[in-house]
């Protein structure tokens, strides 16, 4: 068996803030195979974005952050990268795209320069002309019409969808093996979102690139990922192969998350089953399952012991729950 591209074990990110220690990502473990897409879904404060940034090696540089555990990328631990590793991996073998395509581009820099500087950073022998040629090629790859003209424009001269394409082109510059997409379509209109997701899917396929697709929206991840991990309060609560996950959820939180959203497939005026309360304050941890205070199926044990992510019988479908919903919804389909 070949080793996975990304092998994450007990990854924990802690921030020291004025309100005390905040554990944003708490003992998270997962594997990602080459060329595969893992969707990471959670609400705000679930730690999904911090997880993405930590895998990228971006949080460990913050003065108030501590990262423990391991992130093995192709066998090399990059959880706390030194300067050399960072230079070798960041932007070259692992790349990232961000939520807001406008604010993640430097407003005073030409579109083209964003790309050429990445190219030349990781390949010092590249000439200016060659970098320019490659940048225009990349803009073309992400289906930006008239790439040579766009090369010489500023970010504010492009539409939101175009800007996100530029973000993708920058990320692709050095043909990374792993792309971390942090809410890549949240700031975009729904028609543009579809284009961008299609583009990402195709590029992964063409270039054999693996992707961590981070989103608050299960709908964005559905149909676009091989595996899904649902995060809540810093922990992965459920992890499964997508086809399996969307057929039935084992963790009450995952199910509640799906039920709470007014899907277009639901009949008009449908009553929504909402989740009462709100996510726990990450600065105030309590014993037991983190979802227990909001869970419909809570039992005494849930408030005392913390369940770990275990696959209960069904292969590769883990749920951090003492009383998973196995039998309840095995046949019910959410999709049309």
């Amino acid at each position: 068996m070949s080793r996975p591209l990304l092998h994450v074990r007990d990854l924990t990110t802690t921030f020291t803030t004025s309100r005390g220690e905040v554990v944003s990502v708490d003992r998270v473990s997962f594997d990602l195979e080459r060329g595969q897409t893992l969707g990471i879904v959670g609400e705000s404060g679930s730690g999904k974005s911090v997880l993405g940034r930590t895998v990228m090696g971006l949080t460990s540089a913050a003065p108030n952050a501590t990262v423990t555990g391991s992130v093995l990328f192709d066998g090399v631990d990059i959880a706390n990268p030194d300067k050399k590793t960072r230079a070798q991996y960041l932007g070259a073998r692992i790349a990232m795209i961000f939520q807001d395509p406008l604010s993640s581009l430097n407003p005073v820099k030409l579109i083209g320069v964003h790309i050429t500087e990445t190219l030349r950073r990781h390949d010092k022998s590249l000439s200016r002309q060659e970098a320019r040629r490659r940048a225009i090629e990349l803009l073309d790859t992400v289906r930006i019409p008239d790439p040579a003209r766009r090369f010489g424009q500023y970010p504010h001269e492009l539409s939101g969808g175009m800007r996100q394409r530029v973000g993708i082109a920058i990320a692709l510059a050095c043909r990374p093996q792993l792309l971390i997409a942090d809410e890549p379509t949240t700031a975009l209109d729904v028609t543009v979102q579809k284009h961008v997701l299609d583009l990402l899917g195709m590029l992964c396929e063409e270039q054999g690139m693996a992707m961590l697709l981070v989103s608050h929206d299960l709908g964005v991840v559905a149909g676009r990922s091989d595996k899904v991990a649902v995060m809540y309060a810093g922990r992965i609560q459920e992890e499964a192969v997508s086809s399996d996950f969307f057929r039935h959820q084992r963790h009450p939180y995952s199910q509640a998350l799906l039920d709470a959203k007014p899907h277009l497939e639901n009949p008009a005026r449908a009553e929504l089953v909402s989740i009462p309360g709100r996510p726990p304050d990450p600065a105030h941890r309590f014993p037991g399952c983190r979802f227990a205070p909001r869970c419909r199926f809570v039992q005494g044990r849930c408030r005392e012991e913390e369940p770990s992510l275990e696959s209960g019988g069904i292969p590769s479908h883990g749920a951090a729950c003492f009383y998973p919903l196995d039998a309840v919804r095995s046949t019910q389909e959410v999709s049309i």
Partner: peptide, 26 residues
């Protein structure tokens, strides 16, 4: 129709990405 088709469906089946036609701006 375009809006309806763009809304993501909650499905486990892999969607075949299609990128025919360049992105159209408003």
């Amino acid at each position: 129709q375009l809006l309806l088709a763009s809304v993501p469906r909650v499905t486990g089946e892999r969607i075949k990405p299609s990128v025919d036609g360049a992105a159209q701006d408003l």
